Simulated assay, not measured.
Amino acid sequence: MSFYEELVTQTQMNYSRYYPVYASGSTPYQLTDKKPLPYGEQIDRLVQEVKEADCVVVGGASGLSAAGGGDFYYEDNDSYRKYFRPFAEKYHFKGAFAGMMHPWETREEYWGYLATFLHTTQTAPLRDPYLDLDVLLKGKDFFVLTTNQDTQFVKLYPENKVAEIQGDHRFFQCAACCTDDTWDAVKPVAEMMDAMGDGTKIPTELIPRCPHCGGEAFPWVRGYGNFLQGAKYEEQYEKISRYVLEHKDSKILFLELGVGRLTPMFIQEPFWNLTLSFPHARYIAINDKYNFLPKQLEDRGMAIVADIAQVLRDARDTMESGDNNQ
């Protein structure tokens, strides 16, 4: 087990131990009682911390994509209707994830829904918060760890700069995990969408199959099936492990973006652990809901509670304004 995966395993055990606390939207850790800086000063400090860091490790979670318009997962809103209208009108789902749990009567309609889900993220343009983040990171040594499966980061950066530890919508795996192989999902999904048109079903012959056992395929993602934790999965953990260990003595900034309460064990709590463990590490979290800064990190970190898209836009403007004044 790699270094970072071991950290995640430890925090998963803690999550299980204190599940009622996490389920209530809280944390078992003692948090700082220091009054946060005014918003403008927080933006200035964010920019300064990025500039002064030798390297930055970005932890991108669901709130980052939601801030840029990828907010169709949990509610029946305009974004959801834009991409899933035939299903929304037929089934009245409250967001995309609700359809993933629906007991579909046929595999053809199930795959019609799943193809719509995958196509929506595979073909989505780069969202503004990602572009603003990219400006902040310009010229920096950095690495991205993400629990998002929506392919935003790998549209922006080479894959050796990104660890996708929860999977990626661009790939299929065998639903039964008969093989350690993963394969392209983009072309099959496009074919399913073309065949479905304005309907909600795909032709039977387009249901994706495993080339090894002939059983159904499934997206290579954690959450709804038998997630394949094989070579590709281990490679993601190896990438982030190698990066943080190679930079443990540097002035490293852990930048957490949009972590919710369902998955603090993948980014948030490992980042807390690493900030405490590495001699020159710093930590900043940006979240529109949770003001979680451990007391032990109050002199080495900051939590900005505000709209992530606005924070990154303001930080970008501040960064560019400062560059122009130099």
Rank of each mutant, 00 (worst) to 15 (best):
M302H: 06
S65Q: 07
A303M: 13
D181L: 14
M101T: 09
A176M: 08
T120W: 06
G99I: 02
R282G: 10
Y233G: 08
E246F: 04
W272C: 03
L7H: 05
V311Q: 09
L293G: 15
L297R: 10
A115P: 03
G301K: 03
E108L: 06
G60K: 01
T32G: 09
Y283K: 00
I284F: 01
G215M: 13
F218D: 09
G99P: 08
E159F: 05
D76W: 00
M13T: 12
M196E: 02
H247M: 00
L297Y: 06
A88Y: 10
Y110L: 15
Q48P: 01
Y243D: 02
Y283C: 01
P103T: 00
M1C: 09
F171A: 08
Y157K: 09
V144S: 06
A190Q: 12
Q310P: 04
H169G: 06
K295G: 05
D54A: 13
T121I: 12
A67E: 03
Y80T: 08
P211K: 04
D71R: 07
A281S: 14
S2W: 08
G99E: 03
N287R: 03
R127L: 14
N226V: 01
F278C: 06
T182R: 15
V50C: 14
A190V: 05
P294V: 07
A175C: 08
H102M: 08
S65R: 10
R282T: 14
V56H: 05
R127G: 00
W111A: 03
E234N: 11
K90E: 15
D299K: 15
S26H: 06
I240M: 06
R107C: 03
I202Y: 01
T204C: 01
Y237L: 10
N273L: 14
A185E: 07
Q268W: 03
G25E: 00
K51A: 07
I286V: 15
V162T: 14
S321L: 13
A96N: 03
M196D: 04
P188N: 04
F227Q: 05
T200G: 00
V56P: 06
V21P: 07
G68P: 12
T318I: 00
G301R: 01
A309E: 11
Q268N: 10
M100G: 10
F72A: 09
L245R: 11
K138G: 04
Y237K: 10
Y83P: 03
D198W: 01
G230D: 13
I207W: 00
L114E: 08
S241D: 07
E216L: 13
F142Q: 04
L114I: 12
E109L: 09
S277N: 02
D128L: 09
E105Q: 14
Q229A: 14
L255A: 08
F254T: 00
D180I: 01
L312T: 09
L312K: 11
M302V: 04
V244W: 07
N160M: 05
K90L: 14
M1Q: 07
W220R: 11
R85K: 13
V154W: 04
